[in-house]
Nucleic acid binder design. Structure first.
Length: 315
DNA sequence: TGTCCACGTCT
DNA sequence: AAGACGTGGAC
């Protein structure tokens, strides 16, 4: 039986992650699930530890400002998650919903995260479909439709056990992360091998069937380092929405698909939907832009995305 | 070097 | 419904 085999495997093989505590802590579950969106476990662990050390409860986090949260979130990416987290904390401190339907109304909580929290934190029967689950089940059922996420959810629902639904959800994702990996899956160690459709065909890596990705365009900009005589550097805050919203930056020219002449150091960075090539130049006129002046040793007090850390490296 | 992970959510 | 939205590490 699917769920028994999976649960037995999970009991033996689960990783001991900082948010996997018993009894479950809904704050930990929610915070870790937001951080884990599009982000690997190894990357998330140090951020999660920092957050719960600084803000041990949802009430503590609810009292934090967005700027404080962005400073701790810097480097984790998808900064809209931090903006939604800040809003969401204030709601959750008042009332933490228990059902999938209510949870999915929260900012930053979509169908996957709502089901994950409902099952993991509250033991509800909810089908959480993330990339791991899509991979495991599209292989198990040898699903040949392109972008099979929807089919996977329908197949998953009747497999959910009455008891231990949270462990079942985590077990499925854990199996995807450790055994049913995108490349070179470890089928000999898999509790589902016997009934796996893709394994029967020996075509594991042909699933899931994904639409081909388009190639990323490159954009170009010049970034200006403005340095005062006392060593302070000019930073400014980006608009609250959109790319790197609410994060700090050095001034740049508009980011366009027109290559710039190389005058200074070159920095390359890839975003979700484009590459960026930056020409980093000192700027003589310290009055050329508005912003705040920050001493190099104080840069860590500000929320800087990785792109800006690369640009400021050595300053 | 370039591609993939990475369906997750919002608009 | 399709595009916006980061990052780093594996291969």
């Amino acid at each position: 039986m699917f769920s028994n085999a999976l649960l037995a495997w999970y009991d033996k093989n689960k990783r001991h992650l900082p948010w996997r505590i018993s009894p479950s802590n809904p704050y930990y579950t929610w915070l870790s699930e937001i951080m884990l969106q599009q982000t690997t476990v190894v990357t998330v662990i140090p951020y999660f530890d920092k957050f719960v050390e600084k803000w041990p409860t949802i009430q503590c986090l609810a009292a934090a400002s967005l700027d404080e949260i962005l400073v701790e979130w810097q480097g984790l990416g998808y900064y809209s998650r931090a903006r939604n987290l800040c809003q969401c904390a204030k709601l959750l401190a008042e009332h933490f919903p228990v059902t999938e339907e209510e949870l999915s109304k929260l900012p930053g909580v979509g169908p996957y995260t709502a089901a994950a929290i409902a099952s993991i934190a509250f033991g509800q029967k909810a089908a959480a479909v993330d990339g791991n689950v899509v991979r495991v089940l599209s292989r198990y059922f040898a699903i040949t439709t392109v972008n099979p996420a929807k089919d996977v959810k329908e197949k998953l629902l009747p497999l959910l056990p009455e008891k231990r639904c949270g462990d079942f959800t985590q077990g499925l994702m854990e199996l995807g992360a450790l055994i049913c990996r995108p490349k070179s899956p470890l089928c000999s160690a898999c509790p589902l091998q016997q009934d796996c459709g893709a394994y029967a065909l020996r075509k594991m890596e042909d699933f899931p069937q994904m639409a081909p990705k388009q190639k990323l365009p490159t954009r170009y900009t010049t970034a200006f380092i403005l340095k005062r005589d006392d060593g302070a550097i000019l930073l400014r805050k980006r608009p609250p929405q959109g790319l790197l919203g609410g994060m700090m930056e050095v001034p740049t020219t508009p980011w366009e698909e027109i290559p710039h002449e190389k005058k200074g150091r070159r920095v390359r960075h890839t975003f979700t939907h484009f590459h960026l090539e930056v020409d980093v130049c000192p700027h003589k006129d310290i009055r050329a832009f508005e912003g705040i002046w920050v001493m190099p040793q104080d840069l860590k007090k500000y929320a800087l995305p990785t792109l800006m850390k690369k640009i400021l490296k050595g300053e």
